[in-house]
Computed example of a mutant assay.
Amino acid sequence: MNRRTMPIVAALAATTALLLTACSSSSDSSDKIKGADQNTSSSSKSPKASPTSSAKVSDFGLPDDVKVEIESVTTGDKTKDQILKEQAEGLMARQRIYVDLDPNSRYLTRYYDGEARAFYASEVKRAKAEGRTITGLYRYYDRKVEENTDDRAIVTYCEDRSKAFAKDIKSGKARKTKPSPEDFIKNTATLRKTEHGTWLVQSFRGETSAQECQ
């Protein structure tokens, strides 16, 4: 399949069977969320190479059958490191949204905003109506802050969903699919800094079958 760059809804809806992940936020809540700012490690390995360390983020109370591996990145720049830390937490949190199937979750309002929040709120409602949740392994690597100002940032990262699946809630069975190039996605996320100094994902797009992520 040819590589395609798609807007947020088209890109993620095209991989609905594997998506089943979530998060977003339009409020600048400073409330503590279970899992945020804790120091538990998750190992990470891209298809190309093994990272030297893993991002120190919490498991966000995910069930045992949902694994998230995020490659650690340290730039030496305080602002960029904060952006990457909170972006990593957002990736963890969006999995929790699809476990809870709650479109009003505090995990959405803490980490996401704008188009991203609206998209995930809609997707989580649909997942609940269809009786599906998530299972398997989600991997994120090659995370980079491409641009940043005082209150805006663009982060790119690779995503591997080759071992991530939708799961039927009633039966508990995974809806497994065969691995394919479409499982490797190059994402571009736009984040904004709130008045509380936290970073929220406003929008993102994904390019499926991304060669640089395989």
Score class of each variant (00 low, 15 high):
residue 65 D to S: 10
residue 80 K to T: 09
residue 59 D to K: 13
residue 76 G to W: 04
residue 78 K to L: 05
residue 57 V to C: 05
residue 48 K to I: 00
residue 95 Q to N: 14
residue 89 E to N: 02
residue 69 E to S: 15
residue 64 D to L: 09
residue 92 M to H: 04
residue 65 D to I: 08
residue 69 E to G: 15
residue 81 D to Y: 02
residue 96 R to V: 12
residue 53 S to F: 12
residue 54 S to V: 10
residue 51 P to E: 09
residue 79 T to C: 04
residue 96 R to D: 03
residue 95 Q to D: 14
residue 67 K to H: 11
residue 81 D to Q: 02
residue 80 K to P: 08
residue 70 I to M: 05
residue 48 K to H: 07
residue 97 I to T: 14
residue 87 Q to W: 11
residue 80 K to A: 15
residue 92 M to K: 08
residue 49 A to R: 10
residue 61 G to V: 09
residue 97 I to E: 15
residue 95 Q to P: 03
residue 79 T to F: 11
residue 52 T to R: 13
residue 56 K to F: 02
residue 89 E to H: 01
residue 85 K to S: 06
residue 68 V to K: 09
residue 84 L to E: 06
residue 97 I to P: 04
residue 91 L to F: 12
residue 87 Q to C: 12
residue 63 P to S: 05
residue 86 E to V: 11
residue 69 E to W: 03
residue 62 L to C: 09
residue 60 F to L: 13
residue 63 P to Y: 04
residue 51 P to C: 13
residue 96 R to W: 03
residue 63 P to F: 02
residue 73 V to Y: 01
residue 47 P to K: 00
residue 75 T to Y: 12
residue 49 A to Y: 05
residue 80 K to V: 09
residue 57 V to R: 00
residue 73 V to T: 03
residue 54 S to E: 14
residue 64 D to E: 14
residue 91 L to M: 13
residue 90 G to S: 12
residue 84 L to Y: 06
residue 66 V to T: 07
residue 51 P to L: 08
residue 62 L to R: 05
residue 78 K to F: 03
residue 84 L to M: 11
residue 81 D to N: 02
residue 54 S to G: 15
residue 87 Q to K: 07
residue 57 V to S: 07
residue 88 A to H: 00
residue 88 A to T: 00
residue 68 V to I: 13
residue 78 K to R: 11
residue 91 L to P: 07
